[in-house]
């Protein structure tokens, strides 16, 4: 009886502690978003830095993004060939590849790769700057760390990640086409016919919309976590891991949510 009561009490404490922590994060994240909006007026500070970040993120990520998209397109073609050969007209393969890449694989794989690559980098950079007092130094100079550090990174991600997603879509499309020609010998005419038959311009908008939401997750979450890093090198490591996990889970959550909201109403 006493044990049961203690267990209930412990559970309540645990729930209470987690609720407080979640509320704290929600509050701090909201303040960060407000600071970002407020910082938009300081364009002379963040525009040049955003340009540098965009170049760095874009050039640094394009190879891995295109590589993964290329393999994803090829594998989707080969598996479609394995599953459907003899059961559906050949042009359907074109539809499968285009829709799979544009609606799902292009944006999601790009988002997940960049959550690891860009998200980890942002969290580690800002975390290191926090524990080495560089962020305090900026504040002590009367300058806003949000305008100098976070806004350029977020804006760079919001511009570059959708662009990378579109490149990934194109690469996946062509690699899928080549793989289909090599594996089941589909003609160009059949592939193009299938690709165009079910394609709607809205699919591209959907792909782009997903990419923008994923870009927000890949930039805002790691920046928030890195900015609030504590406890030295260990804290930087913890923040980096947490940033990648949180951004990746958020991408998967947003993927489901956007599919429900934009495709199934």
């Amino acid at each position: 009886m006493v044990q049961e009561a203690e267990l209930t009490l412990d559970l309540r404490r645990l729930v209470g502690r987690w609720s407080l922590r979640a509320a704290g994060h929600a509050g701090r994240f909201t303040f960060l978003l407000l600071d970002l909006l407020r910082g938009l007026t300081e364009w002379r500070v963040y525009v040049p830095r955003a340009f540098e970040q965009a170049l760095s993120v874009g050039y640094g990520s394009i190879f891995i993004v295109l590589l993964v998209a290329g393999f994803a397109g090829a594998v989707t073609s080969l598996q479609a060939g394995y599953q459907f050969t003899g059961s559906v007209p050949l042009y359907i393969y074109g539809t499968v590849i285009v829709e799979s890449i544009i609606l799902e694989l292009g944006p999601v794989l790009t988002g997940l790769i960049l959550a690891g690559r860009v998200g980890a980098r942002y969290a580690a950079e800002l975390g290191t700057m926090r524990v080495t007092e560089q962020i305090d130094a900026l504040e002590s100079l009367g300058r806003s760390p949000v305008s100098h550090l976070i806004l350029p990174r977020v804006l760079a991600g919001l511009v570059v990640i959708p662009a990378l997603t579109m490149f990934a879509n194109v690469t996946g499309f062509f690699s899928g086409w080549v793989a289909l020609k090599a594996s089941i010998g589909i003609t160009n005419a059949d592939f193009i016919y299938g690709a165009r038959y079910y394609f709607r311009p809205f699919d591209l908008w959907y792909s782009m919309t997903k990419a923008v939401f994923f870009a927000a997750a890949v930039t805002l979450i790691p920046c928030y976590i890195g900015y609030n890093t504590q406890q030295g090198a260990e804290g930087v490591g913890r923040s980096t891991t947490m940033a990648v996990v949180a951004a990746s889970v958020t991408i998967l959550f947003l993927d489901t949510l956007l599919a429900q909201l934009l495709l199934n109403h």
Partner: peptide, 19 residues
């Protein structure tokens, strides 16, 4: 606060230079 900080120079323990 930002205006006041412009009148206060702060020397950090390890320099805190921007890498």
């Amino acid at each position: 606060l930002s205006h006041l900080r412009s009148k206060i120079g702060y020397v950090f323990q390890y320099g805190a230079l921007f890498d």
